[in-house]
């Protein structure tokens, strides 16, 4: 069992959380000019790095979406922060 820290609720069991998206992904615009390949890349391709990564997670029970910086090898969570007022 691992604990993640929701920026609002504090430490909670990992079962309360869901991965939402890679951080830093920008929706391609304008939509009518986006090619099928670029749209597919945005929707389905993830970098899935080995090591340090920045991701958007959601704490299901309180509904908070937040940025989590963690290591995919060691599973160490370096930081979590709310998305409000910041860029992810």
């Amino acid at each position: 069992m691992q604990l993640f820290s929701c920026p609002f609720c504090g430490p909670r069991d990992e079962t309360e959380f869901l991965f939402a998206a890679e951080a830093g992904k920008v929706r391609p615009e304008p939509a009518p000019e986006v090619s099928a390949a670029d749209w597919s890349k945005y929707l389905h391709r993830v970098s899935n790095p080995r090591g340090a990564t920045r991701e958007i997670w959601v704490h299901q029970t309180c509904g908070e979406y937040f940025l989590m910086e963690r290591n995919t090898v060691s599973h160490v969570v370096a930081n979590t922060q709310p998305l409000r007022g910041g860029e992810a």
Partner: peptide, 17 residues
């Protein structure tokens, strides 16, 4: 699984999953 002694501003958690 929630640590009740830790305290949390939100009362929302998983109960019986």
């Amino acid at each position: 699984f929630a640590d009740l002694e830790e305290g949390s501003p939100s009362a929302a958690t998983l109960v019986c999953g």
